[in-house]
């Protein structure tokens, strides 16, 4: 295992009196798939939002490649190479699938250059580049359809395609498998593995245990905002505390 790409040092996120995330630490190495698991309300998405800059952590530090990033806005994190998807998909509904990708793809090329940003992207190679990304996630045939008309399975791919268009070093996937058919799940699993092969680290939140355990190199389990366990999927699956968090404790103190 190589050096850590992302280090999360004791972060807490507090909303009023609620500690949604409480002193959580973990790190992600280069080319690693880390699963972030936990029952509903464990603070997984809050953790994601803290890393991707939606809200800064109340306490603690987030380091990307050794540099402290907490406080950077979401667009700042995106530029640093952190791509993310949303649990409840958020496509740019009125735009075509290709345009959805070009929004992310065009940033490094056009941003900060007024005249350049006013040139049409249609004539340039950027439309083809977007096509290549869409081909990879299997959406090339619907590239010019309005994204709002697509079914959930395709929208999950749109989200991944957009994140890939940022050429990320770290990809945050928030339940990218939920609502998908089993054939689709297998395709996305394959896709995530190939993304990792390209040198991208992946942090994924997943409810489907079979998928999460099969895909992740390591997993971190959260419960009530705290880190409950961390380790290889097989170790964590047999961890007493983890089983209790998911299934509860029996009447006589036995694990159910």
């Amino acid at each position: 295992m190589s050096r850590a790409l992302l280090e999360v040092h004791g972060i807490s996120v507090v909303f009023g009196g609620l500690r949604a995330v409480d002193d959580v630490s973990f790190e992600i190495h280069d080319r690693e798939i880390l699963g972030l698991l936990g029952p509903n309300g464990a603070g997984k998405t809050t953790c994601f939002n803290a890393i991707s800059g939606v809200y800064p952590p109340t306490l603690g530090d987030i380091l990307l490649d050794g540099a402290r990033t907490n406080g950077a806005p979401p667009h700042g994190m995106a530029r640093l190479g952190v791509g993310r998807t949303f649990q409840i998909v958020r496509p740019f509904s009125g735009l075509s699938v290709r345009e959805n990708v070009i929004v992310a793809l065009g940033g490094p090329r056009y941003r900060g250059n007024l005249l350049r940003s006013l040139t049409s992207w249609r004539k340039k190679g950027i439309a083809d580049e977007a096509g290549a990304i869409l081909d990879r996630v299997g959406l090339l045939d619907v590239a010019d359809r309005t994204s709002g008309q697509l079914p959930i399975g395709s929208l999950r791919r749109v989200e991944i395609a957009r994140a890939l268009a940022l050429s990320p070093r770290l990809l945050l996937l928030d339940e990218s498998f939920s609502g998908l058919r089993s054939t689709e799940i297998a395709q996305i699993e394959e896709l995530i593995r190939s993304i990792r092969e390209d040198g991208v680290s992946v942090l994924l939140i997943e409810h489907n245990m079979k998928v999460a355990m099969g895909l992740s190199d390591r997993v971190v389990v959260l419960d009530h905002g705290r880190k409950l366990a961390e380790g290889k999927p097989s170790e964590v699956a047999s961890n007493q505390a983890v089983i209790e968090a998911y299934l509860g404790r029996g009447e006589r103190g036995n694990v159910a």
Binding site: S52, V54, P73, P74, H75, M77, A78, G83, R84, F86, R90, P91, F92, S93, G94, L95, E99, I102, V103, A104, G106, G107, R109, Y110, L114, S117, L118, T119, S120, W121, R162, A165, L166
Partner: peptide, 20 residues
């Protein structure tokens, strides 16, 4: 142009646009 596309993205979903 991309400048316009960025505006459309913000119109459709500001949070998602920011993450892009």
């Amino acid at each position: 142009a991309w400048a316009g596309l960025a505006c459309f993205a913000v119109r459709e979903d500001e949070t998602a646009a920011s993450s892009m």
